[in-house]
Design a binder for these strands. Sequence first.
DNA 1: TCCAATTCCTAGCGCTGCTAGATATGAGAG
DNA 2: CTCTCATATCTAGCAGCGCTAGGAATTGGA
Lengths: 191, 191
Amino acid sequence: MSTQARRERERAEREQAIITAARDLALAEGWDAVTTRRLAAEIEYSQPVLYSHFKGKDAIMAAVAVEGFAELATALVSARASSAGPRQAVADVAAAYVAFAQQRPAIYDAMFTLAVDLPFATQDVPTDLARGFAELAETVRPVAADDDLETVTETFWAGLHGLVTLMRSGRLRRVDHERRLAVLVDRFSPR
Amino acid sequence: MSTQARRERERAEREQAIITAARDLALAEGWDAVTTRRLAAEIEYSQPVLYSHFKGKDAIMAAVAVEGFAELATALVSARASSAGPRQAVADVAAAYVAFAQQRPAIYDAMFTLAVDLPFATQDVPTDLARGFAELAETVRPVAADDDLETVTETFWAGLHGLVTLMRSGRLRRVDHERRLAVLVDRFSPR
DNA sequence: TCCAATTCCTAGCGCTGCTAGATATGAGAG
DNA sequence: CTCTCATATCTAGCAGCGCTAGGAATTGGA
């Protein structure tokens, strides 16, 4: 039964092509430009084919988000690994987080502001999301003190997320970005 | 020229009716349910009338947001006024901010995550937004120390915003909300 | 009473996500 | 080698969206 194997492989490749096309288009022109018709044209199949792979547009965005979690986790891991000492680590990891969000705004949105049908604060969180969160947790562990580590991590994360989103939607003066980040980092750094 | 005065008054009333209808509908069913057709039906006029008042749907959402800034500012002012001492003020103002966002999620979204064509970090910020921001600034002034007050305020705001948005989109465990808020408040409280 | 200006509505455009039903393709049986 | 049937895929279309052109109705002033 080699033919069936080939067809399954081709199907998987096509599914990946959809995700990649959505990702690239979103990065280049934003999620509003990612329509099912354009995606279909991109992969050179008709629209309904998309729906044989994904339940709908939201599911495609969720798939892009899942890929994003892997990238973000990797970025955070390498930032902490290459930093000099626990105090510097907070600054480096924060910078890596912000850089990721700024360089891939559309993906960041899919991960953290849109596409809500992803399992987040539940049992079966996407593995890479857990990896990224764990990396944040290790980074702020020295300052957790008597507070619960998970709680402190979530709060630090929320600070980063707030800075990133308010910045990018024009709610914060672009010029003081570095200083704000420094303030946040200082509040979550071991002293 | 009393007739012209009457017509201008009626026009203003109709404009307010549009904003109120949009606000109520968004609060009840979310912004996706706020369509120009439903709005038109609500105010008992035809669709194109909306466009004689507002440039488009975004402008209507912006008008709702502007009303929201006034409410939020008032809530923050009264929270700080009625709190016992500067340390408690940070907690009270933070609680008031979060309560506003939780009780009026759709309005909060219009203010801070959607409708970007509002003037924010520029010269002519809406007055009530400036009021709210000033209130936050006064609250965190005791902890600003040698950091720039505006920068600290923006960072604190970002922390609140991050907690609120991640919470409501299901990215954070609902149960630890109070503890996270306490961690953030602690980091921005005078000691 | 008539005219002109303003106000308002009907109808429709191009787009969206999504789907039902028809058509093409290809593997297995005889 | 041919026929059959299941699977894969496409064409066409639905209902809804934001928005607008052009005509009808209403109103105020001469």
